[in-house]
């Protein structure tokens, strides 16, 4: 028990140190520093939201179109940037393996935390601004919103844990991954509610775990203005076994890793 407690203390210390290191190497100490972590997703969400607003009018199926795009886009870019950043992260940070208390999983966790916190901050920021402009409702159910976010984050972490070791084992992955995350957009649930789709298409997208998470988040925000389809158990039931495979792959890669 004491050993477990000590190990936990070391790992939290290491993760904190790595987060500070990641923020300093990525954003530096100049001007707004680590606030840049939310600037990029924010710009994305606002610009795409405005684009849709001028293309399709102020509302879609009875909800504010800017709010709808923002709630969909931010989790999606979190997923995309986390997975793309996970690629090659072991090789890029192999010098950290000189310090035994830094575990290979820490490298994935740190990048994941930085992306998750950045995108959640952006979500909160954009929600507050849109609320002030009367374009965003007061969340209907914070519980569903947070649970949906957690499920989306779990899915993101799961895929990062698979992609990071595979990218060390195969160079092909590096070439096909950007396209794959792009093709995944229809299966992210970002730009529709499953209920708006034809029955056979709806059934197809509900195989995808992030769609469930997204429907939960949308219900948490818009409440009865939307008609969500989700299962409370599907996303974790899909993610946990895949996460196990990812952890085993990480372990294997660590064993054969060559550090300069």
């Amino acid at each position: 028990m004491a050993a477990l407690h000590q190990g936990w203390a070391i790992q939290t210390r290491v993760i904190q140190a790595l987060i500070i290191r990641e923020l300093t190497t990525r954003f530096g100490r100049e001007n707004i520093g680590f606030l840049w972590v939310m600037a990029e997703p924010l710009l994305f969400a606002v610009l795409v939201g405005l684009l849709w607003r001028f293309e399709k009018g102020p509302q879609e199926h009875g909800v504010s179109i800017i709010a709808f795009v923002a709630t969909g886009y931010l989790p999606l870019v979190m997923f995309r940037s986390t997975v793309l950043r996970a690629m090659g992260s072991f090789a890029a940070n192999s010098s950290l393996m000189y310090h035994r208390q830094v575990k290979i999983l820490d490298l994935i966790l740190v990048r994941f935390f930085v992306e998750m916190i950045g995108h959640m901050m952006a979500y909160l920021f954009i929600g507050t601004v849109l609320y002030a402009l009367d374009e965003f409702p007061w969340p209907h159910d914070l519980g569903y919103l947070l649970l949906g976010w957690s499920y989306y984050a779990l899915f993101t972490l799961t895929l990062a844990t698979i992609v990071a070791p595979l990218s060390e084992m195969s160079e092909v992955l590096e070439k096909v991954m950007p396209v794959t995350t792009y093709l995944m957009v229809p299966f992210s649930g970002a730009f529709f509610m499953a209920d708006w789709l034809a029955p056979n298409i709806k059934a197809a997208v509900l195989w995808s775990p992030p769609v469930h998470a997204m429907e939960m988040m949308r219900y948490g925000v818009f409440g009865d203005a939307v008609y969500p389809h989700f299962s409370l158990t599907y996303t974790p039931a899909w993610c946990l076994p895949v996460l196990m495979v990812g952890l085993m792959l990480c372990r294997h890669v660590r064993r054969v890793m060559v550090v300069e």
Binding site: S95, Q101, V102, V259, E260
Partner: peptide, 26 residues
């Protein structure tokens, strides 16, 4: 950690920043 020609440092960070990082993890 092995004290050698390379390894253990982040090249893009300053000596002080590397020292801070190492102090934190230990």
């Amino acid at each position: 950690w092995p004290l050698g020609f390379g390894g253990g440092f982040q090249g893009s960070l300053t000596g002080y920043d590397n020292a801070r990082f190492i102090a934190r993890i230990y």
